[in-house]
Simulated assay, not measured.
Amino acid sequence: MTMFTVKFWKDAAERLIKTAAQAALGVVVTAPVADLAGIDWKATLSLILVPAVASLLTSVISSGKGNPESASLVQPATGRDL
């Protein structure tokens, strides 16, 4: 099972961080500019953690399904695919 490799966890962590950053950007950008200092960071953290955890769970569920060396569902390209 691929989820016991360092490469898998690096891939999963990269996806989790990217997803969390995208969620944070979505929350901060949609806050009123005048109220940027008044953002409820506790609620914002909750809104960031849910998709980040979903990303991690997706990586775990994907383990061993696509590319056996990563957390991806996508098969690695072969010379015939090009």
Results as ranks from 00 to 15, higher is better:
Ile61Gln: 11
Asp40Cys: 04
Lys42Asn: 13
Leu45Phe: 00
Ala43Ile: 02
Ala23Met: 07
Val27Gly: 03
Arg80Gln: 15
Pro76Arg: 04
Gly64Cys: 08
Gly79Ile: 11
Leu49Glu: 08
Glu69Ser: 09
Ala77Thr: 13
Gly66His: 14
Ile39Asn: 05
Val53Ile: 03
Thr78Pro: 01
Ala24Arg: 02
Ser62Ile: 05
Val50Met: 05
Thr30Glu: 06
Leu56Asp: 02
Lys42Arg: 13
Val27Gln: 07
Leu49Gln: 09
Asp40Met: 04
Ala37Asp: 13
Thr30Leu: 06
Val74Leu: 15
Ser46Ala: 01
Ile48Lys: 00
Ala37Gln: 14
Val60His: 07
Asp81Glu: 10
Asp40Leu: 04
Ala52Gly: 02
Ala77Cys: 12
Val27Thr: 10
Val53Cys: 02
Ser72Cys: 05
Pro76Asp: 07
Ile48Pro: 00
Gly38Asp: 12
Lys65Cys: 12
Glu69Arg: 09
Ala54Thr: 00
Lys42Leu: 03
Thr30Asp: 09
Ala52Cys: 01
Val27Pro: 03
Gly26Arg: 06
Val74Ile: 15
Leu45Pro: 01
Ile61Val: 13
Gln75Asp: 14
Ala71Leu: 15
Val50His: 08
Val53Gly: 02
Lys42Asp: 11
Leu25Gly: 13
Pro68Phe: 07
Ile61Thr: 09
Val60Tyr: 08
Ala71Tyr: 09
Val28Ser: 02
Ile61Tyr: 10
Ala43Tyr: 07
Gly79Val: 12
Ile48Gln: 00
Ala54Lys: 05
Asp40Lys: 04
Val60Gln: 11
Thr30Phe: 03
Ser72Asn: 08
Thr58Ile: 03
Ala31His: 06
Ala34Tyr: 04
Ala23Tyr: 08
Pro51Asn: 04
Ala37Cys: 12
Ala43Leu: 06
Asp81Gly: 09
Ser46Glu: 01
Ile48Trp: 00
Ser46Ile: 02
Thr58Gln: 13
Ala43Thr: 07
Leu25Arg: 12
Ala77Glu: 14
Val50Tyr: 05
Gly79Ala: 14
Ile39Asp: 06
Pro68Thr: 10
Leu25Trp: 12
Asp35Arg: 11
Leu57Phe: 05
Thr58Trp: 03
Ala54His: 04
Lys42Phe: 10
Val50Trp: 01
Ile61Pro: 01
Val50Pro: 00
Leu45Val: 00
Leu25Met: 15
Ala43Ser: 07
Lys65Ser: 14
Gly79Asp: 11
Ser63Glu: 05
Trp41Ile: 13
Trp41Gln: 12
Ala52Met: 00
Ala71Cys: 14
Val74Asn: 14
Gly79Tyr: 11
Ala52His: 00
Ser72Leu: 05
Thr44Met: 01
Ala23Pro: 08
Leu49Ser: 11
